[in-house]
Design a protein around this nucleic acid. Structure first.
Length: 821
DNA sequence: TAATTCGCTAGACCGA
DNA sequence: TCGGTCTAGCGAA
């Protein structure tokens, strides 16, 4: 078997020209040129295998007026500025999911380049009405058309000489264990950031399941250290190490923007090749809008940083800061030492504590490796679900994942994929917003004995139950008008919608998995596998609704999005009315939830009964469930005015668990001292029913602040730079702090998380804001933290108990509180 | 390349 | 210096 890269000598089998192999499909790309040729990468037991498929041709569709046969003949013989189509076939395709197949031209070219150059010219022909599916990347197109699922195991046959694929058959849906390795650099820097054009790599670490290595030209005592003579050898050894491992996955932490570009630039300067690809090629940058990603041939590069950003957006993990130390602590509860760029240089220069630096470097790779191992299963399942490689699945947003699934499904159903909107069209869509979910104004104050009810997967279940789909809006059947949304759009009841039926399948698949999970032991491998699959399904299910209202989405349907939210408002308000009729009192609700008070004389069983009744009346797969019972809850008024604040409350259950929602406590743009004080106050009130204690907690925090004793770490406020610094019209504290830091040589820009402290020197708050690392312990504006942080965070809660701001600063009243009476 | 709307609040900014 | 308006960010769902 001829492998591009392996640990074994090639085997030549003389007579039999067809070779067989079993491998995991990792990647697909194509070789550009006069003829575009698909290349598939497999991970086999013996190494990486790349096979070609030159039988697949680039194409797009055109719908024409008049005779399709004549049009096909005409186009096939045309010359578009030197580009000649290979041929034009006539296919039967549906223009829309509900439509009848019609004759559509499939115009086939030799190369993807030809498609790109000729498609506009074809579109401009007078008899061409539309062009379709002209912008689907060739390799992705191949995976769809050939029904191949990345990450599954395949049995293939290929010609041993030409490496041409002869047959391919799926062997298993289960992804066998993948070989995962991580690497990380420590680099020299003059100021606070490193420039690969001049600053060398100091240390490089590599970690996988079997070994851990740190390469260094300085002698390091640890066992894992490998001495090299210079930076050139260091990089060569690292590349060699990675190559020798025959990895399926190479992982980094921000390798897309740091380690890989650094590696490439240093290798170039040192005159070596960073050929870690399975075919010996260097990692290649792939444009992702303003950002870039790095791809390695035959190996999937998973950037753990990108993975966490995405998981954070979907609420699977909850992270404030994304540096490895914070992530390690938040997710694994480990304390990892943070060494700054300055310290790295100092340690390197003096040679003192070089072991600490090496350990830091080793840990970076180790944590990265662990992160990828932890979260990879979800993405493996996602990749299979939407037929995308790991590389794409870990970097794609909600719309990319949904789109990939829908394109594949369109192909299966023989329907043409809708075009993306033009920029103007997208702009018009953005202008047209629509109404979202319903949020009830809460009954402010303290409440006891609560039940929280919510709809399970509200948006997907509405879409399934009402058959909401872009292709079922306002169908021609009069009787379907009974399925009328509050905004007066109706949805067909005779034919299942394209999107709604896909959702239905995903939804029932997830239910099945969850049922199956119950029969498995939680620690078992099967359980984790099922868990990952249902998690991927959950992410996908929850992504659909948002994409319907997304201006750049191929299946954008404002009517559908409006119907989803319209019905959601109706259902949630109906539940509230029914609850009140049943003798409960609805005190709050947001989008899919109802908070009800269980009055004296009513029991938890009554709530269950109520749920049963509601569920018997809900259509389709819609379901209202009990989220939980709570002993107490508090709602406060808004900052100004008398009305109660929405999206802000705290609950305590009967086991004493606090649930704090929307309060400053959960916001990163508030100082720790304010957040912790607020949490303690809420706890004292909800858990112990002790407002006096709450007052004391606040007083203590204020006293500490005044005495200058509050630790720096308690004072940091985090806020993100969301656009280019120059584009800010209003210079808030985080922008001001960032500007000052940039003037001192810090590399901060769009996307940077700014941790700042309000110091004493300066007039406005922005003037006084300084980047945390530039502020000495004890240098803070106590008044600011008391008046703008601690007091605002607690005053609304304290007032709910009948106390005032005065009580916090002065003696305070001793009278007991009627709030619990 | 890119999921949505609803809601709260801080602090700059601006004109009187 | 005051108060209203606007920009900006973050969180809930």
């Amino acid at each position: 078997m001829r492998l591009l890269f392996n640990n074994f000598a090639p085997q030549i089998i003389g007579v039999e020209m067809a070779e067989k192999a079993t491998g995991i499909l990792l990647d697909a790309d194509y070789l550009a040129g006069a003829q575009s040729v698909i290349r598939l990468f497999f991970s086999t037991k013996k190494g990486k295998l790349a096979v070609k498929d030159s039988s697949f041709e680039p194409y797009f569709y055109a719908m024409v007026s008049g005779s399709p046969e004549e049009a096909a003949e005409k186009i096939a013989s045309m010359d578009f500025n030197g580009i000649k189509p290979k041929r034009a076939d006539i296919t039967d395709k549906k223009a829309t999911p509900g439509g009848q197949p019609e004759k559509v031209l499939k115009i086939i070219f030799n190369s993807t380049k030809d498609v790109k150059e000729a498609r506009e010219q074809v579109r401009a022909l007078p008899f061409v009405l539309h062009k379709r599916e002209y912008d689907i990347p060739f390799a992705k197109r191949y995976l769809i058309d050939r029904d191949l699922e990345p990450l599954c195991e395949y049995e293939i046959e290929f010609d041993e000489k030409t490496m041409e694929l002869k047959s391919i058959k799926k062997k298993s849906d289960i992804t066998p264990p993948l070989r995962i390795g991580a690497f990380d650099f420590e680099t020299y820097s003059a100021g606070n950031f490193s420039d690969p054009k001049k600053d060398p790599v100091l240390l490089a670490s590599y970690v996988d399941d079997e070994e851990q290595v740190v390469f260094s030209e300085k002698k390091i005592k640890q066992k894992y250290a490998v001495l090299v003579k210079d930076e050139k050898e260091l990089l060569e050894k690292l590349v060699e190490k990675i190559r020798s491992k025959n990895l399926d996955i190479i992982c980094t932490y921000n390798g897309d923007n740091f380690d890989f570009p650094y590696l490439i630039e240093r290798a170039k300067r040192l005159g070596i090749k960073a050929g870690i690809g399975a075919d010996g090629s260097e990692p290649k940058p792939i444009k992702k809008g303003l950002d870039q990603a790095f791809a390695v041939k035959g190996i999937q590069h998973v950037d753990a940083y990108q993975v966490l950003r995405t998981l954070s957006r979907f609420g699977i993990v909850n992270l404030i800061k994304f540096d490895l130390e914070s992530v390690d602590k938040a997710l694994f509860g480990e304390e990892k030492e943070k060494i700054t760029a300055e310290q790295i240089v100092e340690m390197w220069r003096t040679g003192k504590e070089i072991e600490r630096l090496a350990e830091y470097n080793r840990r970076d790779s180790e944590v990265t490796h662990r992160l990828v191992k932890e979260y990879l299963p979800v993405y493996i399942e996602m990749g299979k679900l939407v037929h995308q490689t790991l590389f794409d699945a870990t970097r794609g947003g909600a719309s990319m994942l949904v789109e990939a699934l829908l394109i594949r499904e369109s192909f299966r159903q023989n329907v043409l994929v809708p075009n993306r909107p033009s920029d103007q069209e997208a702009h018009l869509r953005i202008m047209q917003t629509y109404k979202g979910g319903f949020v009830r104004e809460p009954e402010k104050g303290l409440h006891e004995n609560l039940a929280v009810l919510d709809f399970t997967s509200l948006h997907p279940t509405i879409m399934i139950s009402h058959n909401i789909s872009p292709d079922t809006v306002n169908c021609e059947h009069a009787e379907c008008k009974k399925n009328m949304s509050p905004d007066k759009y109706w949805f067909c009841t005779k034919r299942k919608g394209f999107i709604s039926s896909i959702l239905e399948q995903l939804f029932s698949k997830r239910l099945e998995l969850k049922k199956e999970m119950k029969s498995k032991k939680k620690e078992s491998h099967e359980y984790s596998a099922l868990f990952a699959r249902q998690q991927a399904l959950k992410i996908l299910l929850n992504s659909f609704y948002g994409t319907l209202g997304f201006a750049h989405f191929r299946w954008y349907s404002r009517e559908s999005a409006m119907a989803v939210t319209g019905w959601s408002r109706e259902y949630v308000q109906w539940v509230a009315e029914e609850a009140d009729k049943a003798g409960f009192k609805t005190i709050y609700g947001d989008t899919d939830s109802s908070f009800i008070k269980i009055p004296e004389g009513k029991t938890k069983e009554d709530v269950q009964e109520f749920l049963k009744k509601i569920n018997s009346e809900l259509p389709g797969v819609m379901n209202l469930e009990l989220e939980g019972f709570y002993k107490r809850g508090i709602f406060v008024t808004k900052k100004s005015g008398e009305s109660a604040a929405k999206k802000k409350y705290a609950l305590i259950d009967y086991s004493g668990n606090l649930k704090i929602v929307g309060f400053e406590y959960v916001r990163r743009d508030w100082a720790g001292i304010a957040k912790e004080t607020q949490r303690s106050v809420i706890e004292a009130i909800l858990k112990e029913g002790n407002p006096e204690k709450a007052i004391e907690i606040v007083k203590k925090a204020i006293k500490e602040l005044k005495e200058g004793k509050t630790k720096k770490s308690e004072l940091v406020i985090y806020s993100q730079i969301k656009k280019a610094i120059s584009r800010y019209e209003s210079i808030g504290p985080h922008v001001a702090a960032a500007k000052k830091a940039i003037a001192q040589g810090k590399a901060l820009d769009e996307g940077s998380m700014i941790g700042y402290i309000i110091t004493r020197a300066g007039k406005s708050i922005s003037d006084r804001a300084q980047l945390e690392e530039f502020v000495a312990e004890g240098n803070y504006d106590a008044d600011y933290y008391i008046e703008n942080q601690v007091i605002p965070a607690v005053i609304k809660i304290i007032r709910e108990l009948g106390y005032s701001e005065e009580d916090l600063i002065h003696g305070g009243k001793q009278s007991s509180l009627g709030a619990f009476g």
